[in-house]
Design a binder for these strands. Structure first.
Lengths: 206, 206
DNA sequence: CTCTATTATCACCGATGAGTGACATACGCA
DNA sequence: TGCGTATGTCACTCATCGGTGATAATAGAG
């Protein structure tokens, strides 16, 4: 439980934001409210209104923290060197995203909430992540040629969609669409399937 | 707004269930509660407790209504005759499921809620749908050989996951992962991409 | 017709929600 | 040193929540 130092607005704001992130990651948006947040942050709820103008402002602030989420999570993949072909590029993207999403309950909750209660505000958060994603692809792609005979953007969308739904299912139920996903071996099976899918549709240079 | 006839328990129960389905399809689980449901069903909330022992009982009753959802939605596809190969089988499954899911806000809401607030109860609803799905595949597959060189169950899971995430995104935001999905042409683009994905991974007999 | 059991309604409880106005405290500037 | 303002606290309103006990109304059995 984050605790605010006294008489320090910046610290209090951080305490509120940190508490909010922790609560969301733990319980989701379910019982997320001003009262609970104030309790968790160890301050009076009045301050939430004063400093953030309510819960929405807190969400926006979290959005600021997460603005570069995709970029930051995928950056290490650039160090692997240039991908040999488009298939390898998308494979890296998919597996990197899978891992990043899998270990980040906060982003999982945000995505899940976006599914069940769409709002312009949550959509903005998601849009920022998407933007970082395509920027990464552009940067990592370099001068690699894009497949012209198939609709790569739509196919990539399908692949990313698949990853998000699988992670969300597994996080909640321990399995996804009949495939158990409780430990690293089981996840490795799913990774292999995704790789097979990507290699099949984008071909592989040998 | 469903309205109960007076002094007719069966009719009242139906009115409650119908109102619940309508509310969930319209607003999701967000403000779904005993008070709101009673108001919408045009009866006193006490009856919800008497006849269903609370909200959970109502959900279970809806589950009963939806027990054969997959089976019923996919059945027409059996009339198309035997698929020529495994790819065609999965293609029919995917496109059939996409369409069924796309036009059914109630099932969409249930799925979305399962993502953001996993519970054994919701999981049971989803499990029933899954079961119907694999039963359909077994029935439709007949004596068609299954691909042995790849992990078809995991790949199929990924494909179905993809479809659900795409539909949920599109329902909320009008687009999914950068691909606009507001009209039938745009959906046709996504269908083509899914077909390409399935054909690529499962090959096609020619 | 009378009585009983089912059906439906009403009035209430305690808890909790968001939101706000008034008040206390302490920091830093003049 | 004293004062103003930023910071923090408290107490309250009003609405809604899930849940329950008592009571009214009516249909059907005898």
């Amino acid at each position: 439980m984050a605790q605010a130092r006294n008489r320090d607005r910046a610290a209090t704001e951080r305490a509120i934001i940190d508490a909010a992130k922790e609560m969301l990651a733990r319980d989701g948006f379910q019982n997320f409210g001003v009262n609970a947040l104030a309790r968790e942050a160890g301050c009076d709820k009045q301050l939430i209104y004063r400093y953030f103008e309510g819960l929405d402002g807190v969400i926006d602030a979290i959005g600021g923290d997460l603005a570069n989420w995709s970029r930051d999570r995928l950056r290490p993949l650039l160090a692997l060197g240039r991908p040999a072909d488009y298939a390898e590029l998308i494979e890296r993207l998919a597996l990197g995203l899978l891992q990043a999403f899998r270990v980040d309950p906060l982003v999982q909750r945000i995505k899940a909430w976006e599914f069940s209660a769409p709002s312009p505000q949550l959509a903005r958060l998601s849009a920022a992540r998407s933007r970082g994603l395509v920027e990464w692809v552009i940067e990592a792609r370099g001068d690699l040629e894009m497949p012209s005979d198939i609709d790569a953007p739509a196919i990539n969308a399908a692949i990313i969609a698949s990853i998000e739904a699988i992670v969300l299912s597994a996080a909640g139920a321990g399995h996804a669409y009949g495939i158990p996903l409780r430990n690293e071996e089981e996840w490795e099976r799913m990774r292999r399937a995704l790789k097979a899918l990507i290699r099949a549709v984008y071909g592989q240079r040998r």
